[in-house]
Design a protein around this nucleic acid. Structure first.
Length: 482
DNA sequence: TGGAGAATTG
């Protein structure tokens, strides 16, 4: 048997090239075609490495564009792709094709650090290769993940120049997602208006993009447009598109926009619609409904939705209702539900504990709060995050234990953020503790100045002390925006 | 050959 042409193989040397599975090992050596077919059969990582090794031993050169292409594609379709492995193979290929470039760009774009995807475009161009309609969605995905709006616009320009932006709904949907993710709503809207073809992905992308980026009103308007057929075609206008039916994703985005606006009447109408089309049985939609009703203060409706979800409840459903009960002042019920959740065999998440601690805080259950705080780590292995520490400060502060809240902050294992100090300032205002209020204010001025609510809290504190000079000083600096 | 969006709870 011949050694691979390049000498060392990372696979052979790492000892991973054990015997292939029974189905493959009997008829070795495979033809080159068979190797490529095996690579296309979605092998597992270990099978893939074995095929790679065998291919090398069969004398297929490492630099073979054909082998490299299929290897990289096989790596890209693994459940958890190894970018470094693909990159090593990519570097060995003599003249990678557009297809191979696209695959390696995709691998980077889908990884946790998509940065290296972008320089591959100039490399392609330098190699005399033209991007195709597959290249742009991958590049734009990388930009969207990195929130690189400006790079995205440059790539948009290139796609237009290449004549690939207008004709491809894939490219346009990718651009739409990028602009929405980067908060470039004007660009998103303009592109959307100019799109000749819109599919369900288009609508979901723009509605969700607006809904989760603080533009719930636009999200609702777009949903209305989605459900309204475009005006009948005139001679100048192209033919009217077939209407697009919303799916569960659309409805979750829509409900979260309603929840953010507190649009209860509209939310109820949406609920009726969901019931009619059967989308209310989608558990994500159910969770969004619980959240909607909880945020609108109609906690009884949230409870009803939760009860009707008997067989589809997830930890999110339980958590949404626990948090909803807690913020609506039903702390005892929230804690009761937490117990039920455990008995139902579902594990709480870190957000569940935010709700639980909030419930304790509202009920003044300081000792229980500390018990839950400890149980988080002890019983569930969840390390408390800064939000949980913030809840504890709130718990102590509301109970009037402002000094304890302050020393709790000083003992935190992480740097307290503005939210934590603001919580303390709120507690000081509630319990008229000007001394500690000033300490919190000093930290807020450094961390996150200019919040009018903070000025109001501090000036109220001074007012309660009849320190009118200080009240005026704070109000003046608030007006000046210092 | 390969493609876009991808859920709710703080």
């Amino acid at each position: 048997m011949r050694r691979p042409p390049s000498g060392r193989s990372p696979v052979l040397d790492s000892g991973l090239a054990g015997p292939l599975s029974a189905s493959c090992s009997s008829s070795w050596p495979f033809s080159r075609r068979q190797c490529l077919d095996l690579l296309q059969s979605r092998p597992s990582l270990s099978a893939l490495k074995q095929i790679h090794a065998r291919t090398l031993r069969a004398g297929v050169p490492v630099s073979s564009a054909d082998l490299g292409k299929h290897l990289i594609l096989a790596i890209a379709t693994l459940p958890s792709p190894l970018v470094a492995y693909a990159e090593r193979v990519f570097c060995l290929i003599c003249r990678p094709s557009v297809f191979t470039y696209n695959t390696i760009i995709r691998l980077h774009a889908e990884s946790d650090s998509p940065g290296p995807a972008l320089p591959l475009l100039p490399r392609m161009l330098a190699a005399g290769l033209w991007p195709d309609t597959h290249t742009y969605p991958f590049l734009l995905k990388a930009c969207a993940k990195l929130l690189y709006g400006r790079d995205g616009k440059v790539i948009h320009g290139r796609a237009v120049h290449d004549g690939l932006a207008v004709g491809s709904v894939f490219v346009q949907n990718s651009l739409l997602h990028l602009y929405a993710a980067c908060g470039l709503f004007e660009s998103a809207h303009q592109l959307f208006e100019e799109m000749p073809v819109r599919n369900l992905v288009t609508w979901n992308t723009i509605i969700n993009g607006f809904a989760i980026n603080g533009r719930p009103n636009e999200a609702l308007t777009l949903y209305r447009d989605m459900m309204t057929p475009r005006p009948p075609s005139t001679e100048e206008q192209p033919a009217v598109q077939d209407p697009v039916e919303p799916d569960g994703f659309t409805m979750v985005s829509l409900l979260s926009a309603c929840a953010e606006l507190g649009a209860l009447v509209l939310g109820r109408r949406v609920h009726v619609y969901l019931w009619k089309v059967g989308l209310d049985r989608n558990s994500h939609v159910g969770n969004a409904l619980i959240d909607l009703y909880a945020k609108c203060g109609t906690i009884g409706d949230a409870r009803k939705v939760f009860d009707e979800m008997a067989h589809t409840r997830t930890a999110v459903s339980w958590t949404s209702l626990i948090v909803g009960l807690a913020v609506n002042g039903f702390g005892k019920e929230a804690l009761g539900l937490f117990g039920d959740m455990g008995r139902a065999g579902l594990s709480p998440t870190e957000i569940t504990f935010v709700g639980v601690l909030y419930a304790c805080s509202h009920c003044g259950l300081v000792d229980d709060g500390f018990r839950y705080f400890d149980r988080m780590r002890m019983d569930y292995g969840i390390a408390p995050k800064i939000e949980h520490f913030g809840c504890m400060v709130d718990l102590l502060g509301r109970a009037g234990l402002v000094d304890r809240a302050y020393s709790f902050i000083l003992g935190m294992p992480m740097e307290p953020n503005a939210v934590v100090w603001r919580t303390l300032l709120g507690a000081c205002a509630m319990h008229k503790r000007t001394d500690l209020g000033e300490a919190a204010w000093a930290r807020l001025e450094q961390l996150d100045p200019g919040h009018s609510g903070d000025f109001v809290l501090l000036s109220n504190l001074y007012a309660s002390d009849r320190r009118w000079e200080d009240v005026h000083r704070i109000r003046r600096s608030m007006v000046k925006g210092e």
